[in-house]
Design a protein around this nucleic acid. Structure first.
Length: 427
RNA sequence: GGAGAGGUCGCAUAGUUGGUCUAGUGCGCUCGCCUGGAAAGCGGGUAGGGUGUAACAGCCCUCGAGGGUUCGAAUCCCUCCCUCUCCGCCA
């Protein structure tokens, strides 16, 4: 969430940002927020004055009672009225603050100056690539569904039976390949890229969703267990970023870098009929996520590093990809800047998003109150948080199966994965 | 799920017949004195947020969270969360 002080001092900048995000319609809410803010200050001042009076007189009453000199009845009577006024003011104040928070929580993040102008995904900008790797596909390529089915390694029908559409089942060498990918990615990040491995809970409470910004904005995309007040995580970003919710991090420990595997659960409400085949859009998938907490001045450096860590995996797997910078109209509300890594699918004839690498600056840190002290004496500051998929396996699996297929319908295992699968070919 | 105990200023603790608790003490940390230097000793400091100010000061809030009683709540009452012990159930 944005700093109310920032909004107060730079309302024009906030409104310009909303325009860049194609959300100009939200601008009146900023004006409303500032009205409430002014009102709040006045109200706080009045309530505080009354509280100061009450504190002072309560001490006088205590003195009178203790020394037994004189009567406190008159003062007590007066303070009864004062206390009534205070509770009236406090009630109004809390309503006002709830209204302010509602607006503030719904306002999107600032945009970095380098984010390209644009309304839709069509106007995203190519940042790197395409990065090519040669695969001899000089025969009619089959898509991942065909391959998976004929080799008996993927079973969407039975997944639909036991859970519903969008819950794939991996079987035999398919299950092993999936696990190999996860292990390969985690091992690479921990051994080569300096991340600490985390295995987080897959269900979180509402405070955690709010902390990373999935709540309230994306509430309808998250599976909910109302009996227990828990939500299935849409990404490991949620539990891992919230590890430090409400904490004051030791400045010397920054940057903190975590890599976490998790299953990810998404309702994908409203996206029916769009890229729904096979792995292209599923309700449960596996992902290794990189999460960073950095000093503010280091976060854009960290963004490039995380991107390169995700790219390293694709290079090791020799999967063709490109990197795009999301434009103002396509970037998610929480991010100040975001790169997507897209892998090429020869059967679909298009690029598929396999990773999203974002800098949230202090947007999540302010929501979840994650701070550090720049040095011993100075005031606490919010850290910057970042994360990036490294990588999501489902779309990656599409591209991998398609690129590594042979003319006779088998799948070669990429070199980098062989020590993890224990076999070279799926047949 | 049942019974009991407990959650206090970084850590450890005091405080529970409501009012000198705007939370004491010890440790840690830090600054100063002392010293050739250090230890010990002595003295001071030691949270966050809001409001306010040019900046200070001042004022308000926070003793797990949220309500309530009261002129006044760490202290009394209610709800919730968490931790520990025992019982039950169970992968």
């Amino acid at each position: 969430m944005l700093d109310i002080n920032f909004v107060r001092q730079n309302p024009d900048e906030v409104i310009a940002m909303l325009k860049r995000r194609q959300m100009a319609g939200e601008a009146p809410r900023v004006t409303r927020l500032l009205e409430l803010d002014t009102e709040r200050k006045q109200m706080v001042q009045r309530a505080d004055d009354l509280k100061a009076l009450r504190n002072r007189v309560s001490k006088e009453i205590a003195d009178i009672k203790r020394t037994g000199q004189g009567s406190a009845d008159q003062l007590i009577l007066q303070m009864k009225t004062v206390s009534d006024d205070i509770s009236t003011l406090d009630t109004e104040l809390s309503t006002l603050e709830t209204d302010m928070e509602e607006i503030l929580l719904a306002l999107p993040n600032k945009l970095h100056e380098s984010v390209p102008e644009g309304r839709t995904a069509e106007e995203n900008m190519l940042y790197k690539g395409p990065i090519e790797f040669i695969h001899q596909l000089d025969f009619p390529v089959r898509n991942h569904l065909d391959l998976g089915k004929s080799l008996g390694i993927l079973d969407f029908e039975r997944g639909a039976k036991i859970s519903g559409a969008g819950f794939p089942v991996y079987i035999g060498k398919g299950a092993r390949l999936e696990r190999a990918l996860i292990n390969f990615m985690l091992d690479t990040h921990t051994a080569n890229h300096g991340y600490t491995e985390v295995f987080p809970p897959f269900m979180v409470n509402q405070e955690s969703l709010r902390g990373t910004g999935q709540w309230p904005k994306f509430a309808d995309q998250v599976y909910h267990m109302p009996e227990d007040g828990l939500y299935a995580i849409p990404t490991a970003e949620v539990p891992v970023t919230n590890l430090h919710r409400g904490e004051m991090l030791d400045a010397a420990s920054l940057p903190v870098a975590y890599a976490a595997y998790s299953a990810c659960f998404r309702r994908e409400a409203g996206s029916y009929g769009k890229d729904t085949r096979g792995f292209l859009r599923v309700h449960q998938f596996n992902k290794v996520e990189m999460v960073r907490f950095t000093r503010p001045e280091k976060s854009y450096e960290a963004l490039e590093e995380i991107l390169s860590h995700a790219e390293n995996l694709l290079c090791a797997l020799k999967i063709p990809y490109r990197v795009i910078t999301l434009c103002g109209g396509d970037i998610s509300a929480n991010a100040a800047k975001c790169y997507d890594i897209e892998v090429w699918s020869p059967a679909e004839g298009k690029y598929l998003e396999a990773s999203s690498v974002s800098n949230f600056e202090d947007y999540q840190a302010r929501r979840s109150n994650i701070r550090f002290k720049p040095d011993g004496k100075s005031k606490p500051e919010f850290v910057h948080t970042l994360n990036g998929s490294g990588l999501a396996t489902s779309r990656l699996m599409v591209s991998l199966l398609e690129h590594y297929q042979t003319a006779d319908g088998k799948i070669k295992v990429p070199e980098a994965l062989r020590q993890y699968t224990g076999f070279d070919i799926i047949d």
